[in-house]
Amino acid sequence: EWSVQQVSHWLMSLNLEQYVSEFSAQNITGEQLLQLDGNKLKALGMTASQDRAVVKKKLKEMK
């Protein structure tokens, strides 16, 4: 059960800090993070497919 802050730290740990402000603005918590798919990541401004791939891979490892 991650807070928005913990999601931000997680993104930073993946060197994806450029997305922290948008994820925070949308109040993405750990629970919501686990529901994100490629389209939702795109909607959050994650347009680079490599970045989405990293996030999806890491989320899969956490589930």
Rank of each mutant, 00 (worst) to 15 (best):
S24T: 14
Q5W: 07
D51C: 00
Q18A: 11
H9S: 11
Y19G: 10
R52E: 04
V55F: 13
V7H: 00
N15P: 00
Q35P: 01
A53N: 11
E22N: 11
L59C: 03
I28C: 01
S13D: 09
H9L: 11
Q32V: 09
L14H: 07
Q6N: 03
K56E: 14
W10C: 02
Y19M: 09
V55W: 01
L34W: 04
G38C: 13
G38W: 00
K56G: 08
K40M: 08
S24P: 04
G30H: 06
L33R: 04
A53E: 14
L44S: 03
Q26R: 11
K42E: 12
N27T: 05
V54C: 05
Q32F: 00
E22F: 01
K42Y: 05
V54L: 15
N27P: 07
Q18E: 10
K57A: 13
E61H: 03
L11N: 04
A43P: 03
E31P: 08
L33T: 04
T47Q: 10
Q32T: 10
L59H: 07
G38D: 15
K42P: 03
K40L: 03
V4L: 11
E61F: 11
Q5D: 15
N27R: 10
N15R: 09
M12E: 15
S3K: 09
S3E: 08
M12F: 02
L34S: 07
Q26F: 06
S13K: 10
W2P: 05
K57Q: 14
K42H: 06
V7P: 01
L14T: 03
S13A: 12
W10H: 00
W10K: 06
S3D: 13
E17G: 14
Q35W: 01
H9A: 14
K58I: 03
K58V: 06
S24Y: 11
V55E: 02
L33I: 07
V7A: 00
W2L: 04
V55S: 01
W10P: 03
T47M: 12
N27G: 15
A43Q: 14
K56A: 12
M62H: 02
K40C: 04
M12V: 09
D51T: 03
A25E: 11
K56Y: 12
K60F: 12
G30T: 01
Q35H: 11
Q5R: 09
L41E: 05
S49A: 15
Q26H: 14
N27S: 12
E31L: 07
K42L: 09
S3R: 02
T47C: 11
E1R: 12
Q6Y: 00
T47V: 13
Y19I: 07
I28E: 05
D37S: 10
I28T: 04
K42V: 08
R52H: 06
K63M: 12
L41V: 01
K60C: 12
G30P: 04
E31M: 08
G30A: 06
L34H: 06
S3C: 03
Q50K: 15
E61P: 01
E17P: 07
V4D: 02
V54H: 10
L41N: 05
H9K: 15
N27E: 12
W2M: 08
Q18V: 07
G30S: 03
Q32M: 11
G45W: 00
A43C: 10
N39M: 11
W10S: 04
T47W: 09
E1T: 11
A43G: 10
A53P: 03
E61M: 07
E61V: 06
L14R: 01
N27Y: 03
E17S: 13
D37C: 06
W2H: 03
M46D: 04
A25T: 08
L41D: 06
E31H: 06
D37Q: 01
Q50Y: 10
V7Q: 00
N39D: 14
E22I: 09
V55K: 02
T29I: 04
Q50W: 07
L16P: 00
N39F: 06
K57T: 13
E61Q: 11
G30D: 06
Q6W: 00
L44E: 05
Q26I: 05
V4F: 09
S21C: 10
H9C: 14
V55Q: 02
Q32H: 08
L36R: 02
G45L: 03
L14D: 00
V55G: 01
E1Q: 14
S24C: 12
G38I: 11
N27I: 01
S49E: 14
L34N: 06
L33Y: 01
S24G: 08
R52Q: 13
Y19H: 08
K56R: 13
G45M: 01
D37F: 00
V54I: 13
